[in-house]
């Protein structure tokens, strides 16, 4: 009941948000558990606003794939920790249109376990939406690893997969999938303590995961901006100074 009320308030609130700000629009799907990491979003919004010019809204909102509001949010977040029901053909068609229009779906597996039941459901549905564009490892040379922080490590509360996966179309990522419970690193209890311990890397691992989540959001807002020549020369120089390995395809 609490969740239904919460979702209702979120949807009601969504109409009041300014469209060019970042809203944490969360995909509310049938079956499984869509509302994991529920305390993460406000923390993440505060962090984004404090360190960058991103205008982020603290309160998340829930959107069903069939919601008429879906297309008002070019970035949608999907989390879960269990298998969920198969999506109806109408939902698949709607999401195809969403991605064709330029929408981005950021998925985080809250189990932090590789090949979890949630991941299985995600892969099953994505295969229907993108029959010819499989979910593939995102290369280290992708703009996502340069969009704000320099090459953050791929991790989360857990380290299930040291890589992100994605569906790339026309040079842009439409789907970004993290298996590591990345957004879980932002969850806090009522006293302001981190809710989950990051293992095996502890607080250093949390920081890397948080940097990665900022990069992913920045990518969703500015695309491949950091691959412009004016940036890559500077970044390459910086990486040389720091003795960092330059990914093969970074310009």
């Amino acid at each position: 009941m609490r969740r239904i009320l919460q979702a209702g308030i979120m949807v009601l609130f969504s109409g009041l948000l300014f469209a060019n700000n970042l809203s944490f629009a969360r995909l509310k799907y049938e079956g499984g558990n869509w509302d994991t990491q529920s305390t993460a979003w406000g923390e993440l919004a505060d962090f984004l606003v404090s360190i960058s010019n991103v205008r982020a809204v603290r309160e998340p909102l829930a959107l069903s794939p069939e919601s008429p509001e879906l297309f008002n949010y070019p970035v949608v977040f999907m989390t879960g920790d269990a298998a969920f029901f198969e999506w109806k053909p109408a939902v698949i068609e709607r999401l195809k249109k969403y991605f064709d229009a330029g929408g981005i779906l950021i998925i985080d597996d809250s189990t932090g376990v590789k090949d979890s039941a949630f991941a299985g459901s995600v892969r099953r549905e994505l295969a229907k939406i993108f029959p010819n564009e499989p979910l593939e490892r995102i290369k280290e040379s992708n703009a996502i690893f340069l969009s704000f922080f320099l090459m953050p490590k791929v991790c989360g509360v857990r380290q299930a997969a040291p890589y992100l996966e994605g569906v790339e179309r026309s040079g842009q990522l439409s789907v970004i999938f993290s298996a590591n419970d990345m957004f879980g690193t932002w969850e806090k209890d009522k006293l302001g303590n981190w809710l989950r311990d990051c293992r095996p890397g502890g607080e250093a691992q949390r920081l890397e995961a948080q940097k990665l989540s900022v990069n992913i959001i920045m990518y969703a807002m500015v695309g491949t901006y950091k691959l412009d020549a004016i940036h890559t020369d500077y970044i390459r120089q910086k990486m040389n100074t720091l003795n960092m390995k330059i990914p093969g395809q970074a310009k």
């Binding site: 960058s52 807002m221 500015v222 901006y225």
Partner: peptide, 12 residues
């Protein structure tokens, strides 16, 4: 002036 969707879509 700030990261936003108008930039992302026009950039494309």
């Amino acid at each position: 002036g700030h990261p936003n969707y108008e930039y992302r879509f026009l950039r494309q």
